[in-house]
Amino acid sequence: MSELEKSDPEKFDLDAYLGRVGWDGPRRAGPETLRGVHLAHALALPFENLDALSGRAPSLDPADLMAKMVHGRRGGYCYEHNLLLWRALEALGFRVSALAARVVLGAEVPESRPRTHAMLRVEVPGEPLPYLADVGFGAAGALLAPVPLVLGAEFEGGGRRHRFAVLPHEGPSPLWALQAYDRRARDWVSQYAFTREPFAAVDFEVFNWHVGTNPRSPFTARAYLQRTRPDRHLALDGSKLTEIRVNGSVTERELTDEAEVRRLVEAEFGIEVPEGLTLLR
Score class of each variant (00 low, 15 high):
E10F: 03
Y77W: 10
L45A: 14
P198N: 04
A221L: 09
G30A: 04
E266A: 11
G75V: 14
L149H: 02
R102C: 00
D15F: 12
S190W: 05
L175A: 03
P130Y: 10
L280D: 11
F164Q: 05
L277A: 12
K6R: 15
R186A: 07
C78T: 09
P9E: 08
L175V: 07
S7I: 03
L151C: 04
N247I: 04
D134L: 12
F219S: 00
L151V: 10
W23V: 06
R113T: 11
V109I: 14
L65A: 03
A91K: 02
A40Q: 02
R35Q: 10
T242H: 06
L53C: 09
E254F: 09
C78K: 00
G138W: 00
A100W: 00
E275Q: 14
E156G: 10
G171P: 06
T33Y: 13
R196L: 15
P172E: 08
A165I: 06
R56A: 13
A98V: 11
G171W: 04
H38W: 06
R35D: 15
P230N: 15
V104G: 01
L92S: 08
G248W: 03
E127R: 04
V206E: 04
A63V: 12
V70W: 01
H233K: 04
G76Y: 00
E80M: 12
A201L: 05
L144T: 09
R74W: 06
M66Q: 13
L65I: 11
A100N: 05
V109Q: 11
E3L: 14
F204T: 02
A98F: 04
Y192C: 08
L151A: 11
A267E: 15
V261L: 04
G212M: 13
A140T: 14
A63C: 12
G136T: 12
G138T: 01
R73W: 05
G270A: 12
V124E: 00
G25E: 06
N208D: 03
V250N: 00
P62V: 07
A118L: 14
P62W: 04
G76I: 00
L144H: 00
W23Y: 15
V206I: 12
A139D: 11
L167T: 08
G152W: 10
D134G: 05
A101S: 14
L120K: 03
L89H: 05
L120C: 09
D24R: 12
T251K: 06
R20C: 14
R281Q: 12
D203N: 04
N208H: 01
A145P: 01
S112E: 10
E32W: 14
A44N: 14
S97L: 09
G72N: 09
A235E: 09
P128F: 10
G141M: 02
R20H: 13
E5K: 03
L65W: 02
K68T: 09
P9Q: 15
D257Q: 14
A180D: 06
L178F: 01
V124H: 01
